[in-house]
Amino acid sequence: MEIMEPNSAIPKFKYLDHTSEAKFQANGATMEEAFAHSVLAMFNMLTDIKKVKPVLRKEIEIKAPKLDTLLFDFLDQFVVLLDTDGFIANQVDSLKITKKFEMYTLKAIVRGDSYKDYDVHGSLKAITYNDMVIKQQKNGTWIVQVVVDI
């Protein structure tokens, strides 16, 4: 399954086969957009995120010395929010990544709703580093690939 941006040739994300866990690839014109789409890919495994109302707002800030760690910790925040707040993300209002003194900072504003009003299935146990990819393609777009333990 691929989810397309309206009027866009690149799908926001797609799911790949992994025997035991869930694997997805998120795309973006920039690395930041690919990071943003990775959140959507993760929650779309649990429910049709198009049906979720973006009524709750979460501000996220992550610091990490490496990009893969930044992505891991960023997505882990949402794994935690699902268990603690029942939060399902379906819209990323903004996502900025900056680098200063060898340290990356990610700041994002993400919207979504409590799982309670939606048909939600499965679970998110943890993010893994297994087969994690963050890279720019030849055409300039970015891909982010993650395996989630579910």
Partner: peptide
């Protein structure tokens, strides 16, 4: 449940932060 999952995540990350030389040599970080 989530408690056990997070314990594993926390310690995986702690090893990564505290033992970077060891991590750099591994075929996969997990």
């Amino acid at each position: 449940r989530g408690l056990g999952h997070q314990v594993c995540t926390d310690f995986l990350r702690r090893i990564e932060d505290e033992l970077p030389e060891l991590i750099a040599k591994l075929p996969e970080k997990d």
